[in-house]
């Protein structure tokens, strides 16, 4: 019925404007398409055109991602502003030691990875659902209202979100405890009860990010040829079947690329979310302390730039390894779907 393995479907669909999440994505996809075009034996002129199209993105990446790589040396130096990048003395792996000296980091790594995986899965499902639902609405005006409403929280800073959450959860004046009291239920001291926080953080993350996350999927969705749906309807498919057998399979490439990119950041936690929303409450650290907040707390006393760089390098290295590993897995499953 559908040619799932049509080689260029994915890249072309995704090139629809509207990706607002990670600046690097359009370029990566464009390059992927370009490379595939070359490997697929397309003419060199097409490749050149695509590369030209990618040039501004490439320049951005080069300047802000590659040139700055020199900063990695700071992780291995005792960095002092006055001595400069090259003048500061080398210290080997000394800067990494503070993270592993006590073993306190292991629960933190567990939190980081587990919560990020949870967010990743949940936000993919929710963003997809939102995108599919919005695409099903025919009246354009209404669509825009929904989209804007869902997208809006993305622009609210975590500091403000933390106050929204506090208004809901505050032990004394909080809305939720007020409701609980009305129903005769004992109020809960949310800010000293870690067990609820994975869920609270998940809800906060979804509320803020899912709408924006759905945009990319929506863009991809709108690029699907309507003829597929017409053909399916003629064959008697219902809405659910349309989604199950047309929409989702055609979105798989986008989903996979999104996931691969997100996995690269699995060691990086959203500092705003994990620091502001639990109000930096020590009682909640068992579940809310992630690598970024851990490093922040460790280094506020010593303020050692080298140690901070070491933590960043560790996160990036693990992320890089994870991207390679998951890409390898995807390639084994279906070479067409892999990022590279």
């Amino acid at each position: 019925m559908i040619d799932e393995t049509r080689p260029h479907a994915s890249g072309e669909q995704v090139a629809v404007p509207g990706s607002l999440r990670v600046a690097a994505e359009p370029w990566q996809r464009r390059l992927a398409t370009g490379l595939r075009a070359r490997l697929g034996g397309r003419r060199a002129r097409t490749t050149l055109g695509l590369l030209l199209l990618a040039a501004p993105g490439l320049l951005y990446i080069f300047v802000f991602k590659y040139v700055t790589l020199i900063g990695i040396v700071v992780a291995f130096k005792r960095y002092r502003t006055v001595d400069g990048l090259l003048g500061s003395p080398w210290v080997g792996f000394e800067n990494f030691r503070f993270m592993f000296g006590t073993g306190a980091i292991w629960p933190v790594i567990r939190n980081t990875v587990a919560l990020n995986l949870l967010f990743l899965m949940a936000s993919t499902v929710v963003s997809l659902t939102i995108a599919i639902l919005i695409a099903e609405i025919y009246r354009q005006r209404v669509t825009r209202v929904y989209q804007t409403t869902l997208f809006f929280p993305q622009f609210i800073s975590w500091v403000l979100v933390s106050y929204f959450v506090y208004a809901l959860l505050s032990t004394e004046g909080g809305i939720i405890n007020g409701l609980l009291r009305q129903f005769g239920i004992e109020p809960i001291s949310w800010y000293t009860s870690p067990q609820y926080w994975p869920l609270i953080l998940l809800l906060a993350a979804l509320w803020k990010g899912a709408g924006a996350g759905s945009l990319l999927y929506l863009a991809a969705l709108l690029g699907i040829d309507p003829q597929y749906y017409e053909a399916a309807r003629i064959d008697g498919a219902n809405k659910w079947q349309e989604i199950r057998y047309i929409t989702l399979p055609l979105l798989v490439p986008v989903i996979v690329i999104q996931l691969l990119i997100a996995i690269g950041f699995i060691f990086n936690a959203d500092f705003g979310l994990f620091y502001q929303v639990p109000r930096n409450n020590a009682a909640l650290y068992p579940v809310t302390d992630v690598l970024d907040t851990f490093v922040f707390r460790s280094l506020t006393t010593v303020g050692n730039v080298g140690m901070a760089a070491a933590a960043g390098l560790l996160q990036a290295t693990v992320g890089f390894a994870l991207v390679l590993a998951s890409n390898w897995l995807v390639r084994r499953w279906n070479p067409e779907r892999s990022l590279f």
């Binding site: 503070f98 020590a282 302390d289 707390r297 460790s298 006393t301 140690m307």
Partner: peptide, 17 residues
Amino acid sequence: ETELAQTSEVFTRAFKP
């Protein structure tokens, strides 16, 4: 400095409550 980074982490986590 390494020890201080570690004790600072413990201090802010364990003693505040």
